[in-house]
Simulated assay, not measured.
Amino acid sequence: MSYFRDGIVWLNDPLNWTNPGGLLDRLQEHLVITFWAVLIACVVGLPLGIWLGHRGRGGGLVVTVANLTRAIPTLALLTILPLTAIGFGKLPVILALAVFAVPPLLANAYVGLRSVDPETKEAAIGMGLSGGQLLRSVELPLSVPYLAAGLRTAVVQVVATATLATLVNGGGLGTIISAGFGLGISRGGAQIVAGGIAVVLLALLAEGLFAGIERLVTPRPLRSARRRRRGRAATTA
């Protein structure tokens, strides 16, 4: 418990936040890494998942890609990529984390499009909507909750895993932890705990923020339908 108390004291010291290489600098690096990794994953995962879900094909491909990317250890990618022409720094971290963030975005986009009621789609087609209009006006709006849930999962995973960026000189909050280990447990224990607390709080903040966004973008009728489904599932269980 003394290390935890010392970690809180470390966090309450303004100099540990404002000094060069302090928490504010490392937090900014962490957020930049997270932003670019999630953005790249969105550019890759969302269009592919939406396209496959709209066509109603490729379910096996989605499962395969999701499983393969989950099976690749992020630490292994962080070890291999810096040894290529990419080199050390933030870029290999961003690319490795982008690979890690693709599965939830891809899978949720596909499931969201496939979960749209077939009768609703048939009615829209009967009204004369083309394939593109059906996607834009019916399928995408109804799949927004799934897209938002995939984004929330990807962001939280990347925020937590970006701590490993310090292993390849990529910066981030993990640098605070590794620097504490460099001092030894007796001298750096408070810093290690403080860095861990900062990562946990940032992940929880991201979870709460994107959970709120998910709720805001989910239309009220869909929220009620999801609650009813959860209630039936709980009753069945």
Rank of each mutant, 00 (worst) to 15 (best):
P103K: 02
R226N: 14
N12A: 14
N67D: 08
D6N: 11
S130R: 03
V144A: 03
F210K: 09
L147Q: 14
L183K: 05
L61P: 11
G182Y: 01
T84F: 07
L27D: 13
T34Q: 00
I125D: 03
A211I: 10
I213E: 00
T64R: 10
I177F: 06
E122D: 15
G189L: 05
G231H: 08
G87D: 03
G126P: 00
A101M: 07
I86C: 04
L205R: 10
A162S: 14
A124Y: 08
V217S: 04
L77E: 04
A179V: 12
P47A: 05
L134T: 05
R55H: 15
P20R: 00
G60L: 12
R226V: 09
R70V: 10
A198Q: 09
L173H: 01
Q191P: 00
P141N: 06
W10D: 01
M127P: 11
N169A: 15
R229N: 09
R26L: 01
G208D: 14
R230C: 12
P92R: 09
F181V: 15
S143M: 06
R57Q: 14
V111Q: 14
F4G: 05
L61H: 07
R223D: 13
R187W: 11
I185E: 12
L68E: 07
G131D: 14
L27G: 14
R70Q: 14
T163F: 00
E119P: 02
L83P: 07
I72H: 02
G132K: 04
M127K: 07
S115W: 08
A41G: 02
L27Q: 08
S178W: 09
R152F: 12
V111L: 13
L147Y: 04
L91A: 11
G45P: 00
R187A: 14
I33F: 03
P104T: 11
V65R: 06
E122K: 03
A109H: 02
L113Q: 04
A41P: 10
T64Y: 09
L91P: 09
V158Q: 02
G231I: 14
A85E: 15
A198E: 07
P92C: 06
S130M: 05
V199H: 06
